[in-house]
Amino acid sequence: MKPAPFTYLRPDSVGEAVAALSAHGGDARVLAGGQSLMAMLNLRLVEPSVLVDISRLEELRTIRLEGNMIEVGAAVTQAELLAWPELDEQAPFIARALPWVGHFQTRNRGTVCGSIAHADPSSELPLSLTLLGGEVVLRSASGERRLTAAQFQTGMLQTGRRADELITAVRFPAGVGANGAAFREVARRHGDFAIVSVGAVASGGGSVRIGVGGVTDTPRCIEIGAELSSVDVVERIGHLAWELGGYDDVHASARYRRDLVRRIAPKLIGEVRACSA
């Protein structure tokens, strides 16, 4: 199908983009890489009256280390982040998860911030944001604010972004997972939506933080303390899977999703423990 008609705006600066969102608010959608939004427009799942195209804004096309945070601008593509020479050292978890985001052909245009803005429960980047304790930077005419992953992603495809706000960047703490990071995903084909994705990072003092995507409407994380034996871990993950519940859809049943969590998560915890030991 083809998109419903809309007015196209291509601002020349972030200031102009923010002004356009103040003027059009809830009738507007922000277009960056378009790898989720264009599909939704084509399927007429969304019919905004205005599109604000930020893909050419050079000021949003930067990856930089600021203090102990990695800041990725809203026009940076997934392929550009994957090619960032410092990714392995500064963000080893993202280096592992990013190749699972869509396909080679969609990572070439899809943006890091766009994937987080889309807030699909099974996406790898929202899981990374939650697991690593990152934040989303939002700008409106009245100023800038930062939201944590939990404040930002409020439900399935739902976020805390106000209609007049532009996501200008996302920030990940640098170096998390340097002592161990692992990612695993089950999908019908590599690059398709994950049925279940699981990530784990060493979080200091022998603890492992584990995050699960694709089972509930937002990614969920828990800490696994160093004191837990591998038998305790299996039990703790069993409880987690049960608490998460999961949902049935055309790809998998809730029960199958819980089963995947029970099987994958303890393995990842073992891998991260082995790395950090």
């Binding site: 291509r10 599909a39 084509n42 052909q105 245009r109």
Partner: peptide
């Protein structure tokens, strides 16, 4: 130079 879906891009872009 970069491979991408032309159905996910507007002509004006």
């Amino acid at each position: 130079g970069v491979a991408a879906r032309s159905c996910l891009m507007l002509a004006v872009q």
